[in-house]
Amino acid sequence: MIVTKLSIIIPAYNEEATIHLILDKIKAVNLTSGIEKEVIIVNDCSSDNTENAILRYISQNAALGIKYLKHEHNKGKGAALHTGINNATGEFLIIQDADLEYDPQEYKDLLGPVLNGYADVVYGSRFIGGRPHRILFFWHTIGNKFLTHMLNLFTNLNLTDMETCYKLFNTKLIQSIHLTEKRFGFEPEVTAKISRVENIRIYEVGISYYGRTYQEGKKIGWKDGFRALWCILKFGLFKAA
Rank of each mutant, 00 (worst) to 15 (best):
residue 5 K to S: 11
residue 7 S to H: 04
residue 7 S to C: 09
residue 8 I to Q: 07
residue 8 I to F: 04
residue 8 I to N: 07
residue 9 I to E: 01
residue 9 I to P: 00
residue 11 P to I: 08
residue 15 E to N: 10
residue 15 E to A: 10
residue 15 E to L: 10
residue 19 I to M: 08
residue 19 I to E: 01
residue 22 I to P: 01
residue 22 I to L: 04
residue 22 I to Y: 03
residue 23 L to D: 01
residue 23 L to A: 01
residue 25 K to D: 14
residue 26 I to G: 04
residue 27 K to T: 04
residue 29 V to I: 11
residue 29 V to P: 03
residue 32 T to C: 08
residue 33 S to T: 12
residue 34 G to V: 13
residue 37 K to L: 08
residue 42 V to R: 03
residue 42 V to Y: 01
residue 42 V to P: 00
residue 43 N to C: 06
residue 45 C to I: 00
residue 46 S to H: 07
residue 46 S to T: 08
residue 47 S to A: 13
residue 47 S to F: 11
residue 47 S to P: 01
residue 48 D to S: 02
residue 48 D to L: 08
residue 49 N to M: 12
residue 51 E to G: 00
residue 54 I to A: 04
residue 55 L to T: 10
residue 56 R to C: 05
residue 56 R to M: 05
residue 60 Q to L: 15
residue 62 A to P: 07
residue 64 L to D: 08
residue 66 I to Y: 05
residue 69 L to R: 05
residue 69 L to F: 10
residue 70 K to I: 06
residue 70 K to L: 12
residue 71 H to E: 08
residue 72 E to Q: 12
residue 72 E to K: 12
residue 74 N to K: 15
residue 78 G to E: 07
residue 79 A to E: 07
residue 82 H to Q: 12
residue 82 H to G: 05
residue 83 T to C: 10
residue 83 T to M: 13
residue 83 T to S: 12
residue 85 I to T: 03
residue 86 N to Y: 05
residue 88 A to N: 04
residue 88 A to P: 07
residue 88 A to G: 06
residue 94 I to R: 03
residue 95 I to K: 07
residue 101 E to I: 14
residue 102 Y to P: 00
residue 103 D to C: 13
residue 104 P to A: 05
residue 104 P to S: 06
residue 105 Q to P: 00
residue 107 Y to G: 04
residue 108 K to G: 11
residue 109 D to M: 12
residue 114 V to E: 00
residue 116 N to T: 14
residue 117 G to Y: 08
residue 118 Y to M: 14
residue 120 D to M: 06
residue 121 V to L: 05
residue 122 V to Y: 02
residue 123 Y to W: 09
residue 124 G to P: 01
residue 127 F to H: 09
residue 130 G to Q: 11
residue 137 F to Q: 10
residue 137 F to R: 11
residue 139 W to L: 14
residue 140 H to G: 15
residue 141 T to F: 02
residue 145 K to S: 09
residue 145 K to F: 03
residue 145 K to E: 10
residue 148 T to C: 09
residue 149 H to Y: 14
residue 149 H to N: 11
residue 149 H to A: 15
residue 150 M to V: 06
residue 150 M to S: 08
residue 154 F to S: 00
residue 155 T to D: 06
residue 159 L to K: 07
residue 159 L to A: 03
residue 164 T to E: 00
residue 167 K to M: 11
residue 167 K to W: 01
residue 168 L to Q: 02
residue 168 L to D: 01
residue 169 F to Q: 09
residue 169 F to A: 10
residue 170 N to M: 08
residue 171 T to D: 09
residue 173 L to V: 09
residue 178 H to A: 12
residue 178 H to W: 09
residue 179 L to V: 04
residue 179 L to E: 01
residue 183 R to L: 12
residue 184 F to S: 06
residue 186 F to L: 12
residue 186 F to T: 00
residue 191 T to V: 14
residue 192 A to T: 08
residue 192 A to R: 07
residue 193 K to W: 03
residue 194 I to A: 03
residue 199 N to R: 14
residue 201 R to T: 02
residue 201 R to V: 03
residue 202 I to Y: 05
residue 211 G to V: 05
residue 212 R to K: 14
residue 212 R to L: 11
residue 214 Y to N: 08
residue 214 Y to F: 14
residue 216 E to A: 11
residue 219 K to N: 07
residue 220 I to W: 09
residue 221 G to E: 05
residue 221 G to K: 11
residue 222 W to S: 13
residue 233 L to Q: 01
residue 235 F to I: 06
residue 235 F to Y: 15
residue 236 G to F: 07
residue 236 G to Y: 06
residue 237 L to D: 00
residue 239 K to G: 00
residue 239 K to N: 07
residue 239 K to M: 06
residue 240 A to N: 10
residue 240 A to K: 14
